[in-house]
Design a binder for these strands. Structure first.
Length: 581
RNA sequence: GGCUCCGUAGCUCAGCCGGAUAGAGCGACGGUUUCCUAAACCGUAGGCCGCGUGUUCGAAUCACGCCGGGGUCACCA
């Protein structure tokens, strides 16, 4: 149930009726008509801009349209007041039972309350994390992992058919470096001194890999050159690193549906086929790029390369797909990979990248635009840096690698739920400060705690009510006489609940999971306020001694709030806390 | 220099597919506890929404140009 959508339908139906009566000219487009919560509560419960957006196309004064529409709307039983205000807004007041109905809907629909059909079952692929399989995930990956996973959950809730996908970059030089690094650990496992040369990965997470290699090969590779072992060790080491990464993701409560391998694209003709497809469109040519303007590169020299004419699809310069030695650039398999996603039938693609990949956005969009004939939109979300602090001081440490803070470090210190919520308290394109001390603080300065505390209070009410012998099942509460919820503070709470389905759609439309976190904070704030009003006015307390009917109605309101908090936390991938003693 | 993100209260940030008197938390000041968890709540103070021009009935929001800060910039992935 989405009350705003229902009232918007009422508005557009009324407009259609006015057209039929000749009060409005025919052929008007109602797409721009919006029904929204007004910023100022004194402006009523809902406001519509219908008269203003239609004034010009209808060739009428906004006020004339507004008055005609007001007359129509006031005939509806749900509408108790309509007034024309400001430049032509129509402010609506709705009957109390409309808001009480929202409480009932939340109880009967449960965690499905707010689920939307907006996605229409369209297939969307969300690619995120895609960290190189050369070591454990570090803090830089955490935000992308959380944003991607929460976005996937959000889109699922809003009616999309979602696939979460990880692209394993196991085809380039970095996995050779991994293999050489692992070989040194293999020598170490055999009692020799490892030579961790400049450019190799020094982290001690490769020690177990060395052990595993010793278990498999004994001492047989010690006197061999890398032409003998490189390919095999590359394979084994990157497999083990992916196990590590899967474990890291699990620790963050992130699950992938599909892992795709870059290496698997080589030798199958997929890269050649993708490039050929572009060539057939006349988008591949041999040429020489200009040096970047304004930036002097000492080692720049003109080179003939195989280039993708990405400028034909919005990029600023054309991009090389093949090196001068004839090997593919990183971009080529990435084109093939995205082509593969298009061919698998996804209607929409989303990539979550770190902000350092900002320069990659236009060329990737150009490739997808070309290869899908402009039919598959690619949205790329860049997540900005996370800066770590502890008590306001910049924080650097790692138990495991010496050089970087790992995902495990963060999860062990802060917990998966807190980490996830905090990563969503900023929109993706703003840098985020993460203070290990602050995120564990139990105060309203900490939004995770604040929301969880509201949920704990709700559960406390339910516990006590059950002890008092009241049936607190959702079905029973839904049958309560909700007309009892007539106090303005209670109506206001119900109004906040009514915004939930609308918010889900707004967040999904913009691929903006952070909006869920902000809404939950506001919802918790409304609840805490209502809770405290019970101090001054005992009639606002949820449990009313000796009056089962009144208690049931008020508990229903609390429970409905709890349902929405749980549903919202579910989208964020955060487990609701029942009790916080 | 190109591209890109950011610039809103003392601080950290929401709001931005145009809408009414621009919001929240922290910090400051002042209140609330016989009560279902005060781990909370209520109130006061605090703003050329970086600057300018344009579009519009209407701009924090859209366009263009500046200023300031971050990221990034050919055969690395």
């Amino acid at each position: 149930m989405n009350l705003f959508a229902e009232i918007r339908t009422l508005v557009t139906d009324s407009l259609t009726a006015l057209v039929a009566e000749g009060a409005l000219p025919s052929g008007l487009d109602f797409a721009a008509v919006a029904v929204e919560p007004p910023r100022d509560p004194s402006h009523g419960d809902m406001a519509t801009n219908a008269a203003m957006v239609l004034a010009k196309p209808a060739g009428m004064q906004p006020r004339a349209i507004a008055e005609a529409l007001a007359a129509k709307l006031s005939l509806d039983a749900r509408v108790t007041g309509v007034e024309v205000a400001g430049p032509g807004f129509l402010n609506l007041r709705l009957a109390a039972n409309v808001w009480q109905g929202v409480v009932k809907a939340a109880l009967t629909e449960g965690l499905e309350f707010g689920r939307s059909m907006m996605g229409g079952g369209r297939k969307v692929n969300v690619e995120f994390v895609s960290a190189n399989p050369t070591g454990p995930m570090h803090v830089g990956h955490v935000r992308g992992a959380v944003v991607g996973d929460a976005l996937a959950r959000l889109l699922d809730f809003a009616g999309w058919n979602v696939t979460r996908e990880y692209y394993i970059n196991d085809g380039g030089a970095q996995v050779d470096v991994l293999a050489r690094s692992a070989y040194e650990r293999y020598r170490e496992a055999n009692g020799l001194e490892p030579e961790i040369r400049e450019g190799l990965y020094p982290g001690d997470y490769l020690i177990p890999v060395g052990e595993a290699l010793k278990a498999k090969y004994g001492a047989s590779l010690l006197d061999k050159g890398e032409e003998v072992w490189l390919a095999d060790i590359r394979e084994i080491a990157s497999e083990l690193m992916m196990d590590e990464i899967r474990g890291d993701l699990a620790a963050l409560n992130v699950k992938m549906d599909v892992y795709s391998s870059e290496k698997a694209l080589y030798g199958t003709g997929q890269i050649e086929a993708a490039i050929q497809a572009l060539r057939d469109m006349g988008l591949i040519y041999e040429g020489t790029l200009e040096p970047p303007k304004g930036k002097t590169l000492d080692d720049w020299e003109p080179r003939v390369q195989t280039l993708f004419r990405s400028t034909a699809h919005g990029d600023d310069v054309d991009r090389p797909v093949m090196k001068s030695d004839g090997a593919w650039t990183y971009f080529a398999p990435d084109i093939a990979y995205h082509y593969n996603k298009v061919q698998r039938g996804f209607d929409e693609l989303i990539d979550i990248f770190g902000a350092d990949h900002g320069g990659y956005v236009k060329r990737m969009k150009a490739a997808v635009s070309a290869l899908s004939g402009g039919k598959v939109p690619l949205d790329i979300k860049l997540v900005q840096l996370v800066k770590l602090y502890k008590n306001g001081e910049p924080f650097k440490m790692s138990k495991r690698a010496g050089t970087f803070v790992t995902l495990r470090d963060v999860v062990e210190q802060a917990g998966a739920d807190v980490t996830r919520f905090m990563m969503l308290t900023r929109k993706n394109d703003v840098t985020l400060d993460f203070d290990f001390a602050k995120v564990l603080e139990q105060s309203k300065d900490n939004p995770v705690f604040y929301v969880q505390y509201a949920n704990a209070r709700i559960n406390s009410v339910l516990r006590k009510s059950r002890e008092a012998g009241i049936d607190c099942g959702d079905a029973a509460l839904a049958k309560a006489d909700l007309a009892i919820l007539s106090h303005p503070a209670e109506i206001q709470m119900a109004q906040k609940l009514a915004e939930w389905p609308r918010l889900v759609e707004i967040a999904a439309k913009g691929n903006e999971p952070h909006r869920i976190a902000f809404y939950l904070y506001e919802l918790a704030s409304e609840f805490h306020a209502l809770w405290n009003k019970g101090n001054d006015d005992p009639s606002l307390r949820f449990v009313q001694d000796g009056n089962a009917a009144t208690s049931a109605a008020k508990i229903a309101l609390a429970r409905a709030t709890g349902v929405v908090i749980s549903a919202g936390l579910g989208i964020l991938g955060v487990t609701p806390v029942e009790e916080m003693r």
